[in-house]
Structures are given as structure tokens and as C-alpha cells.
Amino acid sequence: MDDQTILAIVAMAGASLTMALGAVGAAIGESRIGAAAMDALARQPDEASSITRTLFVSLAMVESTAIFCLVIALILLFSNPFIDTVVQ
């Protein structure tokens, strides 16, 4: 097993783990946001537009953590900064 293979395996494992954990966190957060938004909508239907706007913003912000994870995973997979050291 040369270094390149080890790096590839580690990178793939890291990317998978990153994506999995990030998705779990984001999913939990988004579900809580959705539940809270529904609660608020049921309590105050008049404020529907404001609640919906805040909901979308919050969802996107929470989603961004998952996106960060995705970016990290993609960096690990496709533009790994350590590949040069290994190739050398």
C-alpha cells in the first residue's frame, strides 16, 4: 500500500464522514427550524409572510453548514492539498 493509496482511502473516508456528520447536523437543525416555524405559523397565522421569510433564511443558514461540509469533502476528494506532497 503506497502513500497515494493510503491518502486516497483516508481522503474518501474523511469526505464520507464529513458529509455524513454534516448532513446529520444540518438535518436535525433544519427539522427543528421547520417544527418551530410550523408552531409559530399555527400560533400566529397573520405573521405568515414574516415567519416564512425568517424560516427560509434560517434554513439556508443552517443548510450552509452542510454546504461547508460538502465543500470540505469535495476539497478532500478532488483538490486535496496534500496530493502534491504524496506524489512527490
Binding site: A60, M61, E63, S64, I67, F68, L70, V71
Partner: peptide, 16 residues
Amino acid sequence: LALAVRLFGNIMSGHL
């Protein structure tokens, strides 16, 4: 950084 990466990640991942 978050501002930059959030926008980039969303658009790039959607495109991807």
C-alpha cells in the same frame, strides 16, 4: 469566509 463559502458551495453543489 462563511459568506463566501456558503454562496459558492450552494451554487457549485447545485451545478454539480
